[in-house]
Design a protein around this nucleic acid. Structure first.
Length: 286
DNA sequence: TGCCAGGATATGA
DNA sequence: TCATATCATGGC
């Protein structure tokens, strides 16, 4: 089993990274290992101390996927600007942002609106099962995440109807069609500065401000993106922006006020600060 | 069982 | 350019 041994200056927590809710296709086993499908391959990972062992892909893939090329220690120091984020960093130390394939990320976050993480996981898994390629591994069958053309070219809505997407179903279908028609969409997004890339992503059906920020953060390494969902809004109101009204619908103006504050307060890596705040949110679930 | 959720869209002022 | 209603589903 290949392994990577990380240095003391390379914080990494496999559990935090795969369990924080940024990806939806990894499963935790009772023995502590993780199994997931990424880029059409079944991957198994296990961490013991500073050693990460893995199967299914080569070391460069793992290093790229888990962003081991990023100096996380320096990034965390740069966003560690107050006691609240300091505690979140302490609680979730080693959480790394994964480099997700753009289409899978885009599609997953269309499925992620106004719902909870277990339901998202179920939807994404069903999409893969309905449209992806089967990967046989002994007694177990896994499924690759389908290219958008698999969804856009089926012609029938029946397979998509199996996925429990609810009102998101036409959004997934339309965005699958649009990305199939524009093969270079991701390259185009990658070439744009943050605000422009955000506006372009929001042209896809089912992608609003929050989903666009998630895709930029998780697929395009745009660390200044600061996704605001109900949890983040609640926490930001509680700890940073008390002038925000209590639990009302998040308007565009409010969203912009929050992300502008975050960019100023946490700096250019505010997106990573956001993931730590989100991952540490359990304390706010009262 | 009713409320909540990694919100987006259509509508009407 | 705004606020507001509505949307389908599943988890808890």
């Amino acid at each position: 089993m290949p392994r990577i041994t990380l240095g003391n200056d390379e914080p990494f927590s496999l559990d935090q990274t795969l369990g924080c809710g940024q990806v939806f296709r990894w499963n935790h086993s009772p023995d502590g290992s993780w199994t997931g499908v990424a880029s059409g391959k079944v991957i198994r990972c296990r961490q013991k101390g500073r050693t990460l062992s893995f199967t299914g892909v080569d070391e460069p893939f793992i290093r790229h996927y888990f962003s081991f090329d990023l100096d996380l220690l320096a990034i965390l120091e740069s966003v560690d600007r107050d006691p609240f984020i300091h505690a979140a960093i302490g609680q979730c130390r080693g959480l790394r942002l994964i480099r997700q394939p753009p289409w899978e990320c885009l599609c997953s976050y269309i499925c992620a609106t106004n719902t909870n993480i277990p339901a998202i996981r179920r939807r994404v898994a069903t999409l893969a099962q309905q449209f992806g390629d089967a990967i046989q591994e002994g007694e177990n069958t896994f499924f690759s995440f389908p290219d958008p053309s698999r969804i856009s070219c089926t012609g029938t809505a029946s397979a998509l109807a199996e996925c429990g997407l609810g009102y998101r179903e036409p959004y997934v279908f339309k965005t699958a069609c649009d990305t199939t028609a524009h093969e270079t969409w991701a390259e185009n997004i990658a070439a744009l500065p943050y605000e422009e890339a955000r506006r372009e992503l929001m042209k896809f059906s089912g992608i609003g401000p929050k989903a666009a920020d998630c895709v930029l953060l998780f697929s395009f390494q745009t660390f200044e993106a600061f996704p605001v969902d109900v949890w983040i809004r609640r926490i930001m109101r509680e700890h940073y922006l008390p002038e925000l009204p209590p639990d009302t619908a998040l308007t565009t103006r409010e969203y912009d006020a929050i992300r502008t504050f975050a960019r100023k307060h946490f700096g250019p890596y505010c997106g990573i600060a956001q993931e730590y705040i989100y991952a540490a949110r359990e304390g706010s679930k009262t």
